[in-house]
Amino acid sequence: MISNPPELIIEAGRTERQYWQDLWRYRELFYFLAWRDILVRYKQTIIGMAWALIRPFLTMVVFTVIFGKIAKLPTEGDAPYAIMVFAAMLPWQFFSNSLSGCSNSLITNANLVSKVYFPRLIVPTSAVVVSFVDFMISGMILLGLMIWYNFVPSWRIITLPLFISIAFAASMGVGLWLASLNVQYRDFRYVVPFIIQFGLYISPVGFSSNVVSEQWRLLYSLNPMVGVIDGFRWAILGGESNLYLPGFLLSLALVLVLLFSGISYFRKMERTFADVI
């Protein structure tokens, strides 16, 4: 009847070889969890998905007015300040939404974690996927801005997917760390909003990272989002926007370290999630 079913061995401390196979087998769950979160988010709202447009748009307006008009900070090259701000807003919003989504994902799905088996990695990952959908929607604002300002991007725009994947990796890396720490130490519920609030100011979102003086540039790049944002600006603004290469590589290396350590820490903690959540 069942032709030689695969034998599963459950043991203490065994890192199942099947884990990655299971991840593939449950691939549809990524989609379903993300789909659920998106559906639920705008239930019983009047303007629905429009919220995903209004929030980043208003933030962009505020930043442009404060940093561009009042503080009179320089833009990069000849790009309009609004576009420069928005090119950074996109990855930053993606990152910050992922972070808050990820860190709470296991707690809000505690009933799933303690009652059903599936690779736990799916839960924080679909939180990132949800933010990615928001990211795509906000991307439409960027298109709108480009049309408004009559701004034509250069060939560099085709490298954007590369930087998007770096942003993805950064979000996943930090998100996984926070998600697994949050299961054990609920302190991170309070830490995360702070990181996000703080991060908005220490990342070059409202201003160009050229404002930072040369000698601090490398140190500044220790913030992984600096590399991501600079990359986005380089790709979108084109022209005279320059990529500070050593800093970018440092950020990139940091992102990779965060991602892999995040996965391995998550895998290690995952075994006890159901017991401590």
């Binding site: 069942i2 079913p5 695969p6 034998e7 599963l8 061995i9 459950i10 043991e11 203490a12 401390g13 009933n111 974690v113 303690s114 009652k115 059903v116 088996y117 075994r271 006890t272 159901a274 017991d275």
Partner: peptide, 22 residues
């Protein structure tokens, strides 16, 4: 059903397990 890990010992299972705990 693999929700939580055993502290010791071993389980061998042949086939797909579905659990309905709640």
């Amino acid at each position: 059903s693999r929700i939580t890990e055993p502290t010791k010992g071993q389980i061998k299972i042949k086939g797909r397990v579905a659990s309905l705990l709640e």
